[in-house]
């Protein structure tokens, strides 16, 4: 047992020796990490490496081949449906696409989980929803349909929905992907402010290096099915792991080659 001795707050999520594969294709090979309570933890890595899959494993939507995911000490994959649902009421996820319900307006989207789970009166729900929408700056859109919002606004509305039930943890799946600089700045500000104001534990999955380093308290970097580095943003900037340097500096060639492996170039051209 290799217990880490630390004075950090108790981790809310612990991933222990996680293995996961899809068919023959190994996605995660023995991954361990911990997400401390009340902090912003980022998981970075190149596209297509299975970062979203990791979030789905943490939320119990997928089952690992081996290893454990503990949420507040409870194994996410070894509990019954009711226990899992009770855990999920304490966590929430902001999907890459926003995943707003397309058949209801913004207000009803945010009110949805409250109406399902809180048992509060409609009058109180209305106030809560308006407060959440105000927090993301979209109170004016309450009666609009999701399709009438821009991509960045959809993501903000989805964020309001994600925090409606006051979860302990929010998982952000690529919150900055495909956003223009202004909405990107708004999202960065929102995520860090909400984390502080609500004492949220935040997990940010992203490959937008600068934005992530600016808000994260702790960063894990993934490549090649495992975690290649972790530390505070400052530690990572000063690290001299070449693979990490390539990723953070965004250099086109390095340990991750520019060329996809192929037959000898000359041989293939001339024959």
């Amino acid at each position: 047992m290799n217990h880490q001795v630390s004075i950090e707050p108790k981790p809310l999520v612990e991933i222990q020796n996680l293995n996961f594969s899809r068919g023959e294709h190994v996605i995660f090979d023995d991954i361990s990490l911990s997400i401390p309570k009340g902090k912003v933890t980022a998981i970075m890595g190149p596209s297509g490496i299975g970062k979203t899959t990791l979030l789905k494993l943490m939320g119990g939507q997928l089952n690992p081949d081996s290893g454990r995911v503990l949420f507040d000490g409870q194994d996410v994959h070894r509990c019954n449906r009711e226990e899992l649902f009770n855990m999920r009421k304490r966590m929430s996820m902001l999907f890459q696409s926003g995943a707003l319900f397309t058949d209801m307006n913004v207000f009803d989207n945010v009110a949805f989980a409250l109406r399902e789970h809180s048992g509060l009166s409609e009058e109180i729900i209305k106030r809560i929803v308006l407060m959440k929408l105000e927090a993301v700056g979209l109170r004016g859109t309450a009666s609009m349909m999701p399709s009438e919002l821009s991509g960045g606004m959809q993501r903000r509305a989805a964020l309001a929905r994600a925090i409606a039930l006051e979860p302990e943890m929010v998982m952000y799946d690529e919150p900055f992907a495909g956003q223009d600089p202004v909405s990107m700045g708004v999202l960065v500000k929102l995520i860090s402010e909400l984390s502080d104001a609500l004492q949220l534990t935040s997990v940010v999955i992203s490959h937008d290096v600068q934005e992530v380093l600016s808000i994260a308290d702790y960063v894990y970097v993934m490549a090649d099915k495992r975690i290649i580095a972790h530390g505070t943003p400052l530690e990572l900037k000063n690290a001299d792991n070449p693979q990490l340097k390539q990723f953070i500096g965004g250099e086109p060639d390095g340990p991750v080659p520019f060329h996809f492996p192929a037959e000898d170039y000359q041989k293939e051209l001339v024959g």
């Binding site: 789905k56 939320g59 939507q61 649902f85 009770n86 999920r88 009421k89 966590m91 929430s92 996820m93 999907f95 890459q96 696409s97 995943a99 707003l100 319900f101 397309t102 949805f112 989980a113 399902e116 789970h117 039930l165």
Partner: peptide
């Protein structure tokens, strides 16, 4: 199908709604 591919079904799951 559209609900699934826009992650609305996953999103329900994550809201603890079946």
């Amino acid at each position: 199908g559209l609900m699934k591919s826009t992650e609305q079904l996953s999103s329900l799951e994550m809201m603890a709604i079946d």
